[in-house]
Nucleic acid binder design. Structure first.
Lengths: 329, 329
DNA sequence: CTGAAAGCGCTTACAG
DNA sequence: CTGAAAGCGCTTACAG
């Protein structure tokens, strides 16, 4: 391995001088040129770990997401990596599987400067482990302290779904969800949905399937048996179903279809996220689409500002859109 | 930040002794206990970068994939991270966007021990940069030297698709692809498909849309105009279309449907990959499903063996299955 | 503007 | 079995 020492020897300067050209500090033009030549000739590249040890900066950032099976998270990570790479940062990914220990392990890495910062979609209660001055950007979830939070406009999402149902003549709708009840933006989805429906004269209920944050087989079965109970004599008691994610909506769609309920004829369904296979497939369900790319850009932007100790906005909310996926009229 | 020095002082031993308990070497029981207590009390955690600098091992591995938008890659990365985490490794992700420079940057990191090893889905010609002794596992692509390669059974995949078409009475089928022509497993898809068709008495053609590795808008348009040319008087000249990925198949499905061709009535379509939204959606097209999880496990397993300088198999091929997605009879 | 030197937090022969 | 010491490849005051 070629080190800074080899470069210094080859260029006939001290290691300090080499370090200075590496870090773009002032060096006499002539020396700079010689050092650059030697770097090129020897194929030298800085050892990030040695640099990180001394300078306490590693130019790597970690992202915590539940998993990459959910295309929303995969897309998010994809764009975060892309934006980060453009500014010279590397990305460590942590699939937490909603396990608090795994989240904590990465938060600790940030504390010890093993990563420069953290972007996290987190559903467990890790509040107390966060320090106010740590470069940390949360997605959807609020924390105590002054932790930054980026999210899509969940309130707008709930409202858009409600308005769609109202304008297409629904009479009795329901919001189906499961997930964390910790303070965060996503809780606003259901509230805005129900409120808007009420104001529009449409009856609206909420059905909460508990705190479990992933949609496990077990959760799915609960939803399925709930739907079975909603059907009397081949007719469904709700004519509009809004769900907390597209996956929920897909599960609902499958089950209703199996029970012979027509979608969107008898019942309309709207999911949340706006996911589809790549960018070419159709939307599998009508949905509220999150601006994933903009969210990624905003997260990285905010995180870099935090790392550089520049001022940032603490709450950033990005607009959503309704997308048609064949499950609405 | 609490260091090994603080722990040593607190426990009343030398830093060497602390290091030994950290690395599970022999330490007198009594000392070990005291050190462990101090570690716990002070909340000490090793600084990976300092350790990496000295020990030339960082317990991080990088994976290079074109992007995470394609659910096959997202799933692969998801499982790779999961398996890696279980054995104490961290994962750096690099979306190459099929850019050789980005791939090279990460190969260089591996060379300089900034990562302990590399898993790569690579389509550019980076052969010469690889050294035979570097822990490197390739997916689908062959390299010179003794580089390990893990892949799904592409030959079997081509054969399964052909057999499906034969058994459902197709007379004239085609294989549509684009992508790298570098030596690799994926080239076998088309060959096995065409050969099996021929043997079964079915006419089979190949249509190659060039070396571009991603399916860009431009590529899609080429495929679309090709399909338009295949239709005379409202009838399609091929009755079976096998494509090199599910995304291709989805594009084909959409276009045929738009042109009023019935799928699978008039034309059957089979993709490759076996992707769908999460694990709950239907397959959007009939497909040859790759065993993503097994591939991830095998890659990690092989890489760790390589890192630990244990013997490995150089070519590992895992079986595929046909999955029904409504575009076959 | 540059060099010599200290030090970042670890690991690892080497004595004892 | 343990401690003292060297050294991994860098950066950064500090003299000059």
């Amino acid at each position: 391995m070629v080190t800074i020492k080899d470069v210094a020897a080859d260029a006939g300067v001290s290691v300090g001088t080499v370090s200075k050209v590496l870090n773009n500090m002032y060096v006499k033009a002539d020396n700079r040129r010689r050092v650059e030549e030697s770097i090129h000739k020897l194929g030298y590249q800085v050892n990030t770990y040695a640099r990180g040890l001394k300078a306490q900066q590693t130019f790597t950032v970690a992202i915590i997401v539940p998993d990459l099976i959910n295309p929303f998270f995969a897309l998010l990570v994809n764009y975060v990596e892309q934006v980060l790479a453009a500014v010279g940062y590397k990305l460590l990914v942590c699939n937490s599987h909603c396990n608090a220990d795994r989240e904590l392990a990465y938060i600790n890495m940030a504390k010890q400067n093993k990563v420069d910062g953290l972007i996290a979609v987190t559903y467990s209660n890790t509040d107390e482990y966060l320090e106010a001055d740590m470069p940390f950007v949360s997605i959807d979830r609020h924390f105590k302290h002054q932790i930054c939070c980026v999210s899509s406009d969940n309130e707008m999402g709930g409202r858009l779904a409600a308005e769609k149902f109202i304008s297409t003549g629904c009479r009795n709708v329901i919001y189906i969800r499961n997930g964390s009840n910790l303070e965060g933006e996503t809780l606003k989805r259901g509230k805005a949905f129900v409120d808007t429906c009420m104001q529009g004269g449409v009856e609206a209920t909420r059905m909460d399937f508990g705190e479990e944050t992933t949609l496990s087989k077990q959760q799915m079965n609960k939803i399925i048996s709930f739907l079975e109970q909603c059907v009397k004599n081949g007719s469904m008691m709700y004519d509009g179903i809004f769900t907390s994610s597209d996956v929920h909506a897909i599960v609902v769609l499958k089950q209703l279809t199996e029970m012979g309920i027509r979608v969107p004829g008898d019942v309309q369904i709207i999911g949340y996220d706006g996911m589809r296979i790549l960018n070419v497939g159709d939307y599998p369900v009508s949905s509220i689409a999150q601006p994933v790319k903009e969210m990624a850009v905003t997260c990285v932007d905010t995180l870099i500002k935090l790392i550089e100790k520049k001022p940032v906005e603490r709450r950033i909310i990005l607009p959503v859109t309704f997308v048609e996926g064949g499950t609405t009229r």
